[in-house]
C-alpha cells in the first residue's frame, strides 16, 4: 500500500513537484470551472483554451521550450482571440460562439503549423499534451503564482462576478460596468488555462477546470460547496493521475483528465442531485 501510494512521491523530486503543481492548479481551476459552468460558457472555454496555442507557438519560436515566454504568448493570444470574437459578434451577424469557433480553428491550425516547422513532432506533442513530469522550480513558481493571483482577483470581484453570472440585465440596470467584470472573468479563465497548459497541454488545459466542476454539480446545490467539492475532485484526480502515470508509464496529462472523467461518470450515475440514479428512482 505505502509503496504504491506514497513512496513514488517520497523518492522522486519531479513527482513531488508535479503533485504540488496539480494541487495549485486545482485551487484556481476548480472555482473558475464552476463559474464557467454557471455562466453557461463551457463551449466558449473550450474555444479559449485552443486559442492559447498560437501564442505558445510564437513563444516557442522565439525562445524554444521556455515556459515563461510560452505562457506570456499564450495569455496574449487567447485574450486577443476573445476580444476579436467579441468585436465580431457585436458588429456582424455572427453570434459569439460561432465567431469564437472560427477564430479558434484558425489558431489551432496556425499554432500547430509554427511548432511543426520550427521544432519536432515531440515538441508539438509536449505543447499539445503537456509535460507535467518536467515541471522545474521556475515553472512551479509560475504555476503557483498564477493560481494565487487568480484566486485573489477572483475573491476581490466575487460579488459582482456572481451577480453578472446570475443576472446580467440586473447588473446592467444597476449602472455597474458588467462588461468590465465579464472581461476580468475571461482574463481569469485565460490565466488559469495558461497555468495549466504546462501540466496538461493546450488540448487538455480545460479538463481540470470543467470535469471537476460539472461533476460537483451532482453533489451540491450551494455555490461555496460546489467550489470545495470541485477542488477536492480536481486534486484527487491530479494525485491519482500522477500515480497511474508513474506506475504504468502512461502520459501524465491524459491520465489526470481520465481520472477526472471517471469522477464525472460516477457522479453522473450516482450523484446526490439530479443524477441518473436519483431521477429514475
Amino acid at each position: 500500500m505505502y509503496d504504491f501510494f506514497i513512496l513514488p512521491f517520497e523518492d522522486y523530486i519531479f513527482l513531488r513537484r508535479a503533485l504540488v503543481a496539480c494541487l495549485a492548479l486545482s485551487m484556481s481551476c476548480a472555482p473558475m470551472g464552476v463559474l464557467i459552468v454557471l455562466r453557461r460558457m463551457s463551449l466558449m472555454g473550450d474555444a479559449l483554451s485552443h486559442s492559447i496555442l498560437p501564442g505558445v507557438a510564437i513563444g516557442f519560436l522565439l525562445r524554444g521550450l521556455s515556459l515563461p515566454m510560452m505562457s506570456l504568448g499564450g495569455f496574449i493570444s487567447a485574450l486577443l482571440v476573445a476580444f476579436l470574437a467579441g468585436v465580431v459578434s457585436r458588429t456582424t451577424l455572427l453570434r459569439e460562439d460561432a465567431s469564437l469557433v472560427g477564430f479558434y480553428l484558425i489558431s489551432l491550425a496556425f499554432g500547430s503549423l509554427i511548432v511543426s516547422i520550427k521544432g519536432t513532432n515531440v515538441d508539438l506533442m509536449h505543447i499539445l499534451f503537456g509535460t507535467i513530469l518536467a515541471v522545474d522550480k521556475v515553472s512551479l513558481l509560475l504555476v503557483a503564482g498564477i493560481s494565487s493571483l487568480t484566486l485573489i482577483i477572483g475573491a476581490l470581484i466575487y460579488r459582482p462576478l456572481i451577480i453578472e453570472c446570475f443576472d446580467p440585465s440586473f447588473m446592467y440596470s444597476l449602472g455597474a460596468r458588467g462588461a468590465l467584470y465579464h472581461g476580468l472573468f475571461i482574463m481569469l479563465i485565460v490565466l488559469c488555462m495558461v497555468a495549466s497548459f504546462q501540466a496538461l497541454g493546450t488540448l487538455m488545459a480545460l479538463g481540470l477546470m470543467m470535469l471537476p466542476a460539472i461533476a460537483a454539480r451532482f453533489w451540491a446545490e450551494e455555490i461555496g460547496a460546489l467550489f470545495i467539492i470541485a477542488f477536492i475532485i480536481a486534486s484527487l484526480s491530479g494525485y491519482a493521475g500522477l500515480l497511474l502515470s508513474y506506475h504504468y508509464i502512461w502520459p501524465s496529462g491524459p491520465s489526470i483528465i481520465l481520472v477526472a472523467g471517471l469522477f464525472y461518470t460516477i457522479s453522473l450515475l450516482i450523484g446526490r442531485y439530479g443524477s441518473i440514479w436519483k431521477t429514475h428512482k
Binding site: 454557471l38 453570472c165 446570475f166 443576472d167 440585465s169 451540491a220 446545490e221 450551494e222 455555490i223 460546489l226
Partner: peptide
C-alpha cells in the same frame, strides 16, 4: 426595471 421574461437561470446554486 424588471424585464418581461427574465432570462435568469433558476437552477443557479444560490
Amino acid at each position: 426595471y424588471l424585464s418581461q421574461n427574465s432570462e435568469i437561470d433558476r437552477s443557479f446554486p444560490l
